[in-house]
């Protein structure tokens, strides 16, 4: 018996596997071109009577997280309590990038929901956001002590993303920095 009748079956199997993999992909998440690159150079004003401004120089010296947020961004509200928790724990310094907002709205938002950020850069024109490759808010960047972008999370974080991806990355970078300091 010739196994020719198996050919369509095999093709079907291959197509099914390919489509199955395709279903699991998340095409809305565009891989960042900036992983492993130094943060763009910028200096932004802060949010009035709430947080001092942020510049690229602030992102050097220790591992930090930069969260891109805006008062008009509904999912930002959803993830905000998690950032408040992180700030309370003091495990890593948080900076905010206030994307395409107004100073008044940003100040009011941070006063209403709490301010987890040590510094906030008011990117009211959105140009620094473009330099960071931001295309959907909220976005979160993990930056090492040399000011190099190590990780990017697109969209609101949840407990699982924070505990399984972001904070382990932070601890890994902190440990690497400590080891490097000891070696010197």
């Amino acid at each position: 018996m010739r196994p020719a009748f198996l050919v369509p079956l095999i093709i079907f199997g291959l197509v099914a596997v390919a489509l199955g993999i395709g279903l699991g992909l998340r095409p809305a998440e565009i891989p960042s071109a900036l992983i492993g690159q130094p943060v763009p150079t910028f200096a932004l004003p802060g949010v009035p009577s709430t947080a001092p401004g942020l510049s690229s120089a602030d992102l050097k010296g220790q591992v930090s997280i930069v969260n891109v947020f805006a008062s008009w961004c509904i999912p930002c509200r959803e993830e905000h309590p998690l950032w408040m928790d992180v700030a309370k724990s003091g495990s890593v310094v948080l900076y905010g990038l206030n994307y395409k907002d107004t100073p008044e709205n940003a100040a009011q938002w941070l006063q209403t929901y709490g301010n987890p950020f040590k510094r906030v850069g008011g990117d009211f024109g959105g140009r620094v956001g473009i330099d960071f490759g931001v295309y959907g808010v909220p976005e979160t960047f993990v930056i090492d002590g040399n000011g190099v972008i190590r990780m990017k999370h697109i969209g609101p974080i949840d407990r699982a993303a924070l505990d399984n991806e972001i904070l382990p990355k932070v601890r890994e970078l902190q440990a690497a920095a400590q080891a490097a300091a000891k070696a010197q």
Binding site: I30, P31, S32, A33, L34, I130, D131, F132, G133, Y135
Partner: peptide
């Protein structure tokens, strides 16, 4: 733009 957003 490619340096910021990649070949994408």
């Amino acid at each position: 733009l490619v340096t910021r957003y990649g070949d994408w």
